[in-house]
Design a protein around this nucleic acid. Structure first.
Length: 855
RNA sequence: GGGCGAUUGGCUCAGUUGGUUAGAGCGCUGCCUUCACACGGCAGAGGUCACUGGUUCGAAUCCAGUAUCGCCCACCA
């Protein structure tokens, strides 16, 4: 406890109190509390391969206000923090920074030393890339991300997040890998994870399969090419395509069954131009008579519709594009003629771009291209992190069932949405819509090198071919394993790659396959049963609305499959930070302001104030003006508190309220407490702040001004005491209500008169305030405010100081309201410096002010 | 094309079961060196609540439609 300072300041409070909180363990989770006493939060782990930006500050502040409210409400808050260092962003960063490449075929080198020239691009270019094993690569990741994590933690501490910093995890650490692998093995054992060889969307840059949830459409320029196929009798059949280069992959033509133009052709065949391959003409309802010429060529594979046709019409595969996005060296089956093979030779090894150019030239020369290509722009599927259009490649991939191919599971998962409260509620429709629109299971295998390995091996038959259908699982106590360096039970390492031996699965899991398990990771699933029982299912998942289809949904899938429960009872979706010009703020646009700078400039409370003004789920403009206001509020709290504490002393709290104005204030304050509590229970922190702030300004501007004189003793000791009690109760209450938003300044003020933290104090309750207020009539506050305002206006219009003496003020009003004025007449006279206050019965409210001469 | 939001003074936004002259802050104007606060205070001007119809005694609020903007999804021959 410290003295009330003469000249309080908001500067330096962050350092002072974050150190204090750390030292006193203010936010340490007490794991002896029972589940119903705990409020557990599934914090989003920020990606550590970037830097934090104001959007993070925004949404993490929202969660922190909830956490602080819950803590003050008596719940023990389980509020861990994770770091996401799994996935492509980190992989690329580690590669570039250290000049290394992950080669899962290499054995772990325990003596490996991180390259000393990390970060020195010139030196790295000179020496060339070093290949390292997966485990060594992960270690390098930790080297690099540890520094970032420290910086992140420092920023979060400066912002005042009430996280228990003894509980952190990183998504590539051993614990997370173990959880991810264990969950996968359980999915496998229950038949929820399966592998299949099938066409799937493929990114040729990253050379990996990608999942539906990671797609995005981009507008691309393309061109329609009208191409002639030939019937046996020589008649042409003309198709339109934007991908003429896939002509050698053509396996059929297709038109709508009702399309009279093509009905005569169904069942017949045509030959492809250039390649002379005979292909059938089929009918299928997905063919659109309105598109192009109404008849399309089916290729393996140009788009997902091709895959559907291929599957449903039982067509052969003539794949031409390999995993690197180039045309295969050998022509696909069916191209047997010398001319066809010669034509294909023009494409072999080419990129899609070159192949398209070549084939157009050839078609033009053969006369099979009608007219010129007609340029269009159309939407093309991309991997959200990629920069080349996705291709479709046939490969063996692992999936987890997510309701994309199973109506019952689909319905169950939609139903899980009803078991959670959504904030705001309308966000649930995005969840439901996404599940309804799924068109396949969750593809979790990635042909990348950095990440959590799929924990399986495959036996090799006598000829050395993997027996894919009989994967070898490790026992759970061995996890995490890296099948490329660990040996399966029952085998010797020398049997790797040997006939009759084994081979390790090379694929890793999708990063969401790990982050979908954050509740299991944070709560200690299968590793700390005691903690798990006290924290899971969790109470709150806060996250951005843009990742409902990925993080939110996949987490529900895992909890549904593993625990037959929803992972949380609430999810709160935060909005975006927008530029002043209403565009989403992004780093690429170079308009991101660093959070550290803002925190240093305005103070953490001020930045939090700005953030907390953003309604749940609502996009909010980045507005430094709001931070200035937040700073002003913090300073006002400091000064008003100092004034009240000095005026009212500290021994007043147990006194009695006798004055009607005091009673009215406390009664209205009780209303505020109820409003703020209700708002917080509904996760509407912004409303709680808005109402509290409005009350506070009225409190300082009107109430404090009105009772100032009485508190100084102008109306006697008893009257003064009532004011002291009320001022103290009101201030303590307001500090409590502000504490979730402005943790630093409220703690500072609290510390003047308390030994323990305000953040472990009890959230204000309406009951005691009502008791103290007794029989209160809030209307006296209103008439007092109005009358005081009129007197101020008179002085302002007369261009005199508000301290100017008033010789006589005549208040005209109804009898009823005049009796209220009568009750607070002495306070009004004090506050307005009124010598004589006259009350006159009338019909409308009016105040006539006669200023004292000479003032 | 489907779904979900949004549209309130120059700017950023409140407005929770429909109820007297629509609120706040910023900005703007004026005043006050006020003994908690000049990193301040007091007051003022400023709005056909996107548009059109409907329900109602009464609509920013409910219903229908229109427009504009945003997000999600679908479409990709």
């Amino acid at each position: 406890m410290s003295q009330v300072p003469d000249k309080p300041t908001v500067d330096g409070l962050e350092e002072k109190w974050s150190a204090q909180w750390e030292a006193q363990g203010t936010y340490t989770f007490d794991r002896t509390r029972t589940r119903d006493e705990v409020f557990s939060i599934d914090t989003p782990p920020p990606t550590v391969s970037g830097s934090l930006h104001v959007g993070h500050v925004f949404s993490y502040t929202h969660t922190d206000t909830i956490a602080r409210y819950q803590r003050m409400s008596g719940r023990e808050v389980f509020y861990p923090m994770g770091w996401d260092d799994n996935g492509l962003p980190t992989e690329r960063r580690v590669q570039n920074y250290f000049g290394v490449r992950c080669d899962p075929g290499l054995a772990y080198d325990p003596d490996f030393v991180p390259p000393a020239d990390g970060g020195d691009q010139k030196a790295i270019t000179a020496r060339g890339e070093i290949s390292v094993s997966r485990r060594n690569f992960v270690e390098l990741c930790h080297v690099l991300t540890t520094e970032d994590e420290k910086a992140f933690e420092a920023l979060w501490r400066q912002l005042g997040l009430s996280v228990d910093w003894s509980m952190t995890y990183a998504t590539i650490d051993e614990h997370c890998q173990r959880v991810a692998q264990r969950a996968f093995l359980r999915n496998l054992a229950r038949g929820e994870a399966y592998q299949v060889e099938a066409p799937s969307l493929w990114d040729v840059t990253f050379r990996t399969a990608v999942a539906q949830a990671e797609l995005e459409d981009r507008e691309d320029s393309g061109a329609y090419h009208q191409i002639t196929f030939h019937r046996a009798d020589g008649d042409p059949v003309v198709i339109d395509t934007t991908r003429p280069e896939l002509l050698p992959a053509c396996v059929a033509l297709v038109a709508h069954p009702d399309d009279e133009r093509y009905q005569p052709l169904f069942g017949s065949t045509v030959t492809t131009p250039l390649f002379g391959v005979e292909v059938p003409i089929h009918a299928h309802q997905l063919a659109d008579p309105e598109k192009g010429t109404g008849i399309a060529m089916i290729c393996t594979f140009g788009d997902t519709t091709d895959v559907t046709w291929w599957r449903e019409l039982n067509l052969p595969v003539r794949a031409v594009i390999n995993r690197a996005g180039r045309f295969t060296e050998e022509p696909p089956s069916g191209i047997d003629s010398p001319d066809g093979r010669a034509a294909y030779a023009q494409l072999a090894g080419a990129t899609v771009f070159t192949a398209k150019k070549n084939i157009v030239e050839m078609l033009r020369a053969s006369g099979d291209l009608i007219g010129d290509p007609r340029p269009i722009t159309h939407a093309v599927k991309y991997f959200e992190k990629g920069d080349r259009p996705l291709e479709i490649v046939t490969s063996r991939q692992w999936y987890i069932r997510n309701g994309g191919r199973d109506a019952d599971l689909n319905g169950d998962l939609i139903g899980r949405g009803d078991q959670m409260s959504w904030h705001p509620a309308y966000m649930q429709s995005r969840y439901t819509n996404w599940i309804e629109g799924l068109n396949g299971d969750w593809l979790i295998s990635r042909q990348r090198f950095f990440g959590v390995p799929i924990p399986l091996w495959y036996p090799l038959d006598d000829s050395g071919e993997p027996i894919w259908d009989s994967p070898i699982s490790p026992s759970e106590d061995r996890l995490p394993v890296d099948p490329s360096s660990d040996t399966p039970d029952g085998y010797q390492e020398s049997q790797r790659h040997q006939p009759g031996g084994f081979v390790g699965e090379l694929d890793i899991m999708d990063t969401w396959a790990t982050s979908s398990l954050t509740p299991q990771i944070a709560c200690g699933w299968e590793e700390d049963d005691d903690l798990f029982a006290r924290t899971y299912p969790m109470d709150l998942r806060p996250q951005g609305h843009d990742i409902i289809r990925t993080w939110l949904f996949s987490t529900v899938v895992r909890s549904h499959l593993e625990a037959d429960t929803a992972p949380w009872s609430n999810c709160a979706l935060s909005g975006w930070i927008l530029d002043p010009d209403r565009k989403k703020m992004s780093k690429s646009k170079g308009n991101v302001v660093t959070p550290k700078d803002l925190l240093d400039r305005y103070g953490s409370d001020a930045v939090r104030y700005w953030a907390a003004n953003g309604r749940p789920g609502t996009d909010t403009a980045f507005d430094e003006g709001q931070m200035k206001i937040g700073r002003r509020l913090a300073i006002k709290i400091l000064n008003a508190s100092r004034f009240v504490r000095n005026l009212a002393g500290t021994e007043a709290a147990d006194g009695t309220v006798t004055d009607p104005l005091d009673a009215a204030l406390l009664d209205r304050l009780a209303d505020l407490v109820e409003t703020a509590t209700t708002a917080f229970e509904g996760f509407d922190y912004a409303r709680a702040l808005e109402r509290t702030e409005a009350f506070f300004w009225s409190f300082t501007d009107n109430y404090v001004e009105l009772v100032k004189g009485r508190a100084y003793g102008t109306q006697g000791d008893d009257a003064a005491r009532s004011a002291h009690v009320t001022l103290t109760l009101a201030l303590d209450t307001l500090l409590g209500l502000f504490a979730p938003f402005l943790p630093f300044v409220t703690e500072e003020v609290w510390g003047w008169t308390n030994e323990t933290s305000i953040h472990r104090s009890r959230w204000p309750m309406a009951g005691p305030l009502r008791t103290a207020a007794g029989q209160a009539d809030q209307a006296v506050l209103d008439v007092a405010d109005e009358a005081l305002s009129e007197i101020r206006r008179a002085k302002t219009e007369a261009k005199v100081s508000l301290r100017a003496e008033v010789e006589r003020a005549t208040v005209t009003d109804t009898q009823e309201r005049l009796s209220l004025i009568e009750a607070i007449a002495a306070d009004l006279k004090d506050a307005g410096k009124i010598d004589e206050l006259v009350l006159e019965i009338g019909t409308t409210f009016d105040v006539d002010v006669t200023l004292a001469t000479g003032s």
